[in-house]
Lab assay of single mutants.
Amino acid sequence: QTVQFNGLEYHFPNPEEAEKFAKKVAKELGGEVRVKDGRWQID
């Protein structure tokens, strides 16, 4: 599972970890999490 933001990609072994990370980062950055092409993106 991949999380993308600021032009970087973070890879996680399972979707739960990816989701948790994506939501944490979005909260800290005040961004929005969305899934695109099977990847988590933070904008």
Results as ranks from 00 to 15, higher is better:
residue 7 G to R: 02
residue 9 E to K: 06
residue 25 V to Q: 04
residue 30 G to S: 06
residue 20 K to C: 15
residue 32 E to H: 13
residue 42 I to V: 11
residue 5 F to E: 01
residue 7 G to D: 07
residue 4 Q to E: 14
residue 7 G to S: 04
residue 37 D to S: 03
residue 14 N to F: 05
residue 26 A to F: 04
residue 37 D to R: 01
residue 41 Q to N: 06
residue 16 E to N: 07
residue 24 K to W: 10
residue 23 K to A: 08
residue 21 F to Y: 07
residue 13 P to M: 11
residue 38 G to M: 02
residue 1 Q to G: 11
residue 35 V to Q: 09
residue 31 G to H: 11
residue 41 Q to M: 12
residue 32 E to G: 06
residue 30 G to V: 04
residue 19 E to G: 03
residue 41 Q to P: 04
residue 12 F to V: 00
residue 21 F to D: 04
residue 1 Q to I: 12
residue 38 G to S: 05
residue 8 L to T: 10
residue 43 D to P: 03
residue 27 K to H: 11
residue 3 V to A: 01
residue 34 R to L: 09
residue 4 Q to H: 13
residue 33 V to I: 12
residue 23 K to Q: 11
residue 42 I to T: 04
residue 14 N to I: 04
residue 16 E to S: 11
residue 19 E to T: 01
residue 13 P to Y: 07
residue 17 E to D: 12
residue 39 R to Q: 11
residue 32 E to T: 15
residue 39 R to D: 06
residue 28 E to A: 13
residue 18 A to H: 00
residue 31 G to L: 15
residue 42 I to L: 04
residue 21 F to M: 04
residue 13 P to A: 12
residue 9 E to S: 08
residue 27 K to D: 09
residue 4 Q to N: 10
residue 42 I to D: 04
residue 3 V to F: 02
residue 13 P to I: 09
residue 43 D to C: 15
residue 40 W to P: 04
residue 42 I to M: 03
residue 15 P to C: 15
residue 39 R to G: 08
residue 6 N to L: 11
residue 22 A to H: 01
residue 15 P to Q: 10
residue 21 F to T: 02
residue 28 E to P: 02
residue 43 D to G: 08
residue 31 G to M: 14
residue 12 F to C: 14
residue 4 Q to W: 14
residue 16 E to W: 10
residue 6 N to R: 08
residue 1 Q to Y: 15
residue 16 E to P: 01
residue 29 L to V: 13
residue 27 K to Y: 09
residue 3 V to N: 00
residue 41 Q to V: 15
residue 35 V to T: 06
residue 43 D to N: 10
residue 33 V to Y: 06
residue 7 G to L: 01
residue 4 Q to P: 01
residue 25 V to S: 02
residue 2 T to G: 02
residue 30 G to Q: 07
residue 33 V to F: 06
residue 41 Q to E: 14
residue 37 D to Y: 00
residue 12 F to W: 01
residue 24 K to M: 12
residue 5 F to Y: 11
residue 12 F to M: 01
residue 22 A to Q: 02
residue 10 Y to F: 13
residue 3 V to G: 01
residue 13 P to E: 13
residue 20 K to I: 10
residue 14 N to T: 14
residue 40 W to E: 04
residue 15 P to D: 07
residue 22 A to M: 06
residue 16 E to H: 09
residue 30 G to P: 03
residue 15 P to A: 14
residue 31 G to N: 05
residue 6 N to D: 13
residue 32 E to W: 06
residue 8 L to D: 08
residue 21 F to N: 03
residue 18 A to Q: 00
residue 26 A to G: 05
residue 17 E to C: 14
residue 1 Q to L: 12
residue 36 K to S: 10
residue 10 Y to S: 01
residue 28 E to Y: 12
residue 28 E to V: 11
residue 30 G to W: 05
residue 21 F to I: 03
residue 17 E to P: 00
residue 17 E to R: 02
residue 14 N to V: 03
residue 26 A to V: 06
residue 37 D to H: 04
residue 7 G to W: 03
residue 2 T to C: 15
residue 39 R to V: 14
residue 14 N to E: 05
residue 11 H to A: 06
residue 9 E to Q: 08
residue 24 K to H: 12
residue 31 G to K: 10
residue 21 F to P: 02
residue 11 H to Y: 12
residue 2 T to A: 06
residue 36 K to G: 05
residue 37 D to T: 02
residue 36 K to P: 03
residue 17 E to Q: 08
residue 30 G to C: 13
residue 41 Q to C: 15
residue 41 Q to I: 15
residue 11 H to L: 08
residue 35 V to F: 15
residue 39 R to H: 11
residue 18 A to W: 01
residue 15 P to S: 12
residue 4 Q to Y: 14
residue 25 V to M: 14
residue 19 E to W: 06
residue 19 E to L: 09
residue 20 K to M: 09
residue 37 D to A: 02
residue 23 K to C: 14
residue 15 P to H: 10
residue 29 L to I: 14
residue 1 Q to M: 13
residue 27 K to S: 11
residue 20 K to G: 07
residue 34 R to D: 05
residue 6 N to Q: 09
residue 5 F to H: 07
residue 31 G to W: 12
residue 11 H to M: 07
residue 26 A to C: 14
residue 22 A to W: 06
residue 36 K to M: 06
residue 14 N to Y: 04
residue 36 K to C: 13
residue 8 L to Y: 12
residue 39 R to A: 10
residue 23 K to D: 08
residue 1 Q to K: 12
residue 17 E to A: 11
residue 25 V to G: 01
residue 41 Q to R: 06
residue 34 R to Y: 12
residue 26 A to Q: 07
residue 37 D to E: 08
residue 13 P to C: 15
residue 8 L to P: 01
residue 3 V to P: 00
residue 29 L to M: 10
residue 22 A to V: 07
residue 37 D to Q: 01
residue 21 F to H: 03
residue 16 E to G: 07
residue 5 F to A: 05
residue 13 P to N: 13
residue 28 E to H: 13
residue 31 G to V: 15
residue 34 R to G: 05
residue 20 K to T: 07
residue 15 P to F: 11
residue 7 G to F: 03
residue 28 E to D: 10
residue 33 V to G: 03
residue 21 F to K: 03
residue 1 Q to P: 09
residue 1 Q to V: 12
residue 22 A to I: 06
residue 33 V to S: 05
residue 2 T to W: 13
residue 27 K to N: 09
residue 25 V to L: 14
residue 30 G to R: 06
residue 2 T to Q: 05
residue 26 A to D: 00
residue 30 G to F: 06
residue 34 R to I: 13
residue 10 Y to P: 01
residue 29 L to D: 04
residue 8 L to I: 14
residue 3 V to K: 00
residue 32 E to Y: 11
residue 6 N to C: 15
residue 6 N to G: 10
residue 42 I to A: 04
residue 23 K to H: 11
residue 23 K to S: 09
residue 25 V to K: 08
residue 17 E to W: 06
residue 24 K to P: 00
residue 26 A to W: 03
residue 40 W to R: 03
residue 18 A to P: 00
residue 1 Q to C: 15
residue 26 A to H: 03
residue 37 D to C: 14
residue 2 T to E: 03
residue 11 H to V: 10
residue 25 V to P: 00
residue 36 K to R: 11
residue 22 A to D: 02
residue 31 G to F: 13
residue 28 E to G: 07
residue 32 E to A: 11
residue 24 K to G: 09
residue 41 Q to L: 14
residue 14 N to M: 04
residue 20 K to V: 07
residue 21 F to Q: 02
residue 3 V to M: 02
residue 25 V to W: 09
residue 40 W to V: 05
residue 13 P to K: 11
residue 34 R to S: 13
residue 27 K to T: 09
residue 34 R to W: 08
residue 28 E to W: 13
residue 11 H to W: 14
residue 12 F to T: 00
residue 20 K to E: 13
residue 24 K to D: 10
residue 5 F to Q: 01
residue 33 V to P: 08
residue 37 D to N: 11
residue 29 L to T: 13
residue 21 F to L: 03
residue 18 A to V: 00
residue 31 G to S: 08
residue 20 K to Q: 12
residue 13 P to Q: 11
residue 30 G to I: 03
residue 25 V to R: 04
residue 4 Q to M: 14
residue 25 V to N: 02
residue 4 Q to K: 09
residue 34 R to V: 13
residue 14 N to L: 05
residue 29 L to H: 13
residue 3 V to Y: 00
residue 42 I to G: 05
residue 19 E to D: 05
residue 43 D to A: 10
residue 32 E to R: 13
residue 32 E to Q: 13
residue 35 V to H: 11
residue 8 L to N: 10
residue 33 V to E: 03
residue 40 W to H: 05
residue 26 A to N: 02
residue 19 E to A: 06
residue 39 R to I: 15
residue 32 E to P: 04
residue 15 P to R: 11
residue 2 T to I: 15
residue 40 W to Y: 08
residue 35 V to C: 15
residue 9 E to V: 13
residue 19 E to Y: 08
residue 31 G to R: 10
residue 17 E to F: 04
residue 7 G to P: 00
residue 28 E to T: 08
residue 4 Q to L: 15
residue 22 A to L: 06
residue 26 A to K: 03
residue 15 P to L: 08
residue 3 V to L: 03
residue 32 E to D: 09
residue 17 E to T: 07
residue 9 E to N: 07
residue 24 K to Y: 08
residue 35 V to A: 07
residue 10 Y to T: 03
residue 38 G to H: 05
residue 21 F to V: 05
residue 41 Q to G: 05
residue 22 A to P: 03
residue 39 R to L: 10
residue 36 K to E: 11
residue 6 N to W: 07
residue 30 G to H: 08
residue 14 N to W: 03
residue 28 E to C: 15
residue 21 F to S: 02
residue 11 H to S: 07
residue 14 N to A: 05
residue 40 W to G: 05
residue 11 H to I: 10
residue 19 E to R: 06
residue 23 K to P: 02
residue 7 G to A: 02
residue 29 L to F: 13
residue 4 Q to A: 13
residue 43 D to S: 12
residue 2 T to D: 03
residue 13 P to F: 08
residue 6 N to S: 06
residue 20 K to H: 10
residue 14 N to D: 09
residue 37 D to V: 00
residue 29 L to R: 06
residue 13 P to S: 13
residue 39 R to K: 14
residue 9 E to W: 08
residue 19 E to H: 05
residue 16 E to R: 08
residue 18 A to Y: 02
residue 8 L to C: 15
residue 25 V to A: 06
residue 20 K to R: 12
residue 30 G to D: 06
residue 13 P to L: 11
residue 2 T to Y: 10
residue 8 L to F: 13
residue 42 I to N: 04
residue 7 G to M: 03
residue 30 G to A: 05
residue 39 R to M: 13
residue 26 A to I: 07
residue 1 Q to E: 07
residue 19 E to I: 05
residue 14 N to G: 06
residue 12 F to H: 00
residue 36 K to D: 07
residue 26 A to L: 07
residue 35 V to D: 05
residue 41 Q to Y: 15
residue 39 R to S: 09
residue 28 E to I: 14
residue 24 K to R: 10
residue 17 E to V: 05
residue 16 E to V: 10
residue 24 K to I: 09
residue 23 K to I: 09
residue 39 R to W: 08
residue 41 Q to F: 15
residue 21 F to A: 04
residue 2 T to F: 08
residue 43 D to F: 15
residue 2 T to L: 09
residue 29 L to P: 01
residue 24 K to V: 06
residue 30 G to T: 04
residue 13 P to G: 09
residue 23 K to R: 12
residue 40 W to K: 04
residue 13 P to D: 14
residue 16 E to L: 09
residue 42 I to W: 05
residue 12 F to L: 01
residue 20 K to N: 11
residue 10 Y to I: 11
residue 24 K to S: 11
residue 16 E to A: 11
residue 22 A to K: 03
residue 16 E to I: 10
residue 42 I to Y: 03
residue 22 A to S: 02
residue 17 E to Y: 04
residue 37 D to K: 05
residue 38 G to W: 00
residue 32 E to C: 15
residue 14 N to H: 04
residue 19 E to Q: 06
residue 29 L to G: 06
residue 32 E to M: 12
residue 13 P to R: 07
